[in-house]
Amino acid sequence: MAEVASVGEVASLRAVGVRVGGNDLLRDVDLDLERGEHLAVLGPNGSGKTTLLRVLSTYRFPTRGTARVLGATFGAADLRALRPRIGFVSTALDDLLHVRAAALPLVAAAVHGGLWPPPHVLDDAEVAAAARWALARVGAGHLAERRVDTLSQGERQRVRIARALVGDPDLLLLDEPFAGLDLGGRESLLADLDAVLAEPGGPTTVLVTHHLEELPRGVRAALLLREGAVVASGGVDEVLRDAPVSRCFGLPVRVQATDGRFVARAVVAT
C-alpha cells in the first residue's frame, strides 16, 4: 500500500542515499519539510547540497531509502506531473539567460514550461500579467523590456527566480541564488526574497548556500551536510551554532546572530 502524505507535508525523506560511480553523494538523509516552512541547506563544496535539491526536484531518484514530494512517493507515482508545481533556480540556466530575448517574454514562456518564448507569447493577457507579476515579486518589474543578455548578474538572477515563480509553484528550490553577486546585489535580492517568503500561501522554499550571511530572515530551519551526510538539522537557532557549523565545515567557527541574520567567522588562534 502506498504511503499517504500527512496534511501540510511538502517533502519527506527517510534514509535517502544517492550513489553514483561508486561514490556516495548522499548517505542516510532524513528530512521533513512542511508547507510554509523555509529551509536552508548548508555545507562545504561536495557535501551533497545540489544532489539533495535534485532529489527534491524529482529529477534524481534515490539509490536507497524512500522519498515523497508533494504527496507523491518515488517509484509509486508519475513524478512528471509534479514538476510544474516545483520551481528550480540554478546557474545551470546561464546559457539560457545570455539570449537576445527580453525578460518579460522569457518569463512568460515558463508559464507552460518553455525555455524559449514562442511567437506571440504575450498575446495571452493572463500569461503576460502572470509574467509581469512574477518579475515584480522579485523587484524586477523595471526589467520587463530589457534584453536578458544586457543585464547584470544580479538582474539575471531575478529573472531566473521570476521564471521559477511564474507558475505559482508549491515548492521553490534555490541553488546558490547569491553566487557572483556583489554586496549591494546580495542585500537587495535578500530583501526581495524575504518578501516572497513572507507571502501568505507562497511557495515553501529550500535554499542552498555555503554562507550563513546569505540566509534570508524568513528561513527558520536549517540542515547541515558534510560528505553527503547530515551533521545537524532543526531550527536555525539550534543548528546554526558554533559546534554544529564547525563540524560541518571542518574548522573552528564562531557564529553570531543579529536581527535575524547570521554571520560565521573562523576562529583564529592567538
Rank of each mutant, 00 (worst) to 15 (best):
Q153M: 13
D259A: 15
A266I: 06
G21L: 11
R226Q: 07
D24A: 11
W133V: 09
H98Q: 15
P119E: 14
V148R: 01
G71R: 06
T58M: 12
R146T: 01
Q153T: 15
G202N: 09
H211T: 08
A40T: 06
V267R: 15
G218Y: 06
R35D: 00
V4I: 09
G71S: 11
L171E: 02
A195K: 12
L135D: 08
R147C: 09
V236N: 02
L52H: 03
R241M: 00
P244A: 01
A198C: 08
H142L: 03
P44W: 02
V138K: 06
D237M: 01
V55A: 10
G139S: 06
A195G: 11
D124A: 14
R85D: 11
V166H: 04
L173R: 05
V268W: 08
A134D: 03
D94V: 13
R265G: 01
S246Y: 07
V138N: 07
V4T: 14
V111A: 15
G235F: 00
R68Q: 15
L197V: 04
F249E: 04
G113H: 13
D123T: 09
T91L: 14
Q157E: 04
G65F: 08
V245N: 03
L190S: 02
A232C: 02
G228C: 04
L183K: 02
R226G: 04
T51E: 01
P252R: 15
L172F: 07
A140K: 05
L106F: 07
F178A: 08
R35E: 13
D168E: 13
A164R: 05
P203I: 08
L197G: 07
E37H: 12
L224S: 12
T270V: 14
P119G: 07
A110T: 12
A221K: 13
L171H: 09
G65C: 08
L33A: 04
V231L: 05
G180Y: 02
P62N: 07
L122S: 12
A195W: 04
A2M: 10
L52C: 09
S12M: 08
E187A: 09
R261W: 05
A232T: 00
R158C: 06
D124G: 10
G234N: 05
L165F: 11
P177N: 14
V7G: 03
D170G: 11
L174Y: 00
D78E: 14
A243E: 15
L70F: 07
